[in-house]
Design a binder for these strands. Structure first.
Lengths: 185, 185
DNA sequence: ACCTGAACACCGTTCAAGT
DNA sequence: ACCTGAACACCGTTCAAGT
């Protein structure tokens, strides 16, 4: 006689994401997740291999949310960089998880797509990937250091981000003109 | 009758750093550290408050090593950026720990000093801190993403780092001329 | 004064037994 | 077919007892 399902993978990942946001990775215990969805810890292993893959699922959700935010930023470099940092502020633990767990190649490509479109129109196809890596590395490092408290030499961090963003966007727009199609062609 | 000391804080932190390098944070158990220095786990609590502060000590060592490497890079922006990445490659787990644990302000200032000297001569005092943050954020993000496997859209990562480094150093050198003292004055 | 065995609370995970 | 209690191995940490 089959027992009715008392939860689902979706509900489990939801609960894990909520616990992560509220208390960091150490708060995501199998027991806490189980209690949040109304079962006992061993039942979770019917839906998920182990804690590590559960956290990987949470990381995938975070990647998808970031992709949605970046896609909504409409291929504008400044808007993309601002949306990226805002995601880090809104969901710091999810942001950290993104760069801790390994995300699959397809999802990675989806997240990168809006940035690549924007850099392609800024510096041309030839250097679009290099430019995208320059921008995402900078933004990732800035937010990582900001969240980790590594920026404590004074000054306004909003202004520091603006400085870097303006500098990068301007210098990318000015660079590599020779590699872009001539204007008006 | 006093028992002779069978270990020391230095030896304990050494062992923890070695375990971190070899197996990541999860390999740094109090039992493994204790065994490595020849005592039982409870004895560690005579020298260190708890595991978290032990990892903080390891992080401080890593910060000091990075400071030494950057100081040896002699205030040249390109050399600094290359040395920074090399540290990440040589000690990936220590690198990650640096941006996970909170390092104290004095040590942070010491690590930043060589970079600030180099950016001061590149863009002038007024924007030295902004420029230092731009460079360290980029390098931190690049190495973090590289170590985490977030760069998988193809291409040579050495070349990608060169691209970013050359772009940043050149654009910083060209920018802010108005804020620097006139040449030869 | 340092070290240790024993104990405690808390993990992740497995599995036989229930329905 | 899903759920659970019980159990296991393994953590970090405390503390009374040893020397």
């Amino acid at each position: 006689m089959p027992t009715p399902e008392r939860t689902s993978l979706d509900e489990i990942v939801d609960a894990a994401a909520r616990l992560l946001d509220e208390g960091g990775p150490s708060a995501v215990t199998m027991q806490a997740v189980a209690q949040a969805v109304g079962v006992k810890a061993p039942s979770l292993y019917k839906r998920v291999r182990d804690r590590e893959t559960l956290l990987a699922r949470v990381g995938e959700r975070a990647a998808d949310e970031l992709t949605a935010r970046l896609t909504a930023a409409s291929d504008d470099l400044n808007a993309l960089l601002i949306a990226f940092r805002r995601f880090g502020h809104d969901r710091p633990e999810a942001f950290r998880l993104l760069f801790t767990t390994v995300v699959d190649a397809d999802r990675l490509a989806a997240t990168s797509a809006p940035v690549l479109r924007a850099t392609t129109s800024a510096v041309g196809e030839k250097h679009a990937l290099d430019a995208a890596r320059l921008l995402t590395a900078w933004a990732t490092g800035f937010v990582t250091m900001e969240l980790g408290g590594a920026f404590r030499l004074g000054g306004d961090l909003d202004q520091a981000y603006d400085y870097g963003r303006a500098h990068l966007v301007a210098s990318l727009s000015n660079a590599h003109d020779g590699d872009r199609p001539a204007q008006g062609s």
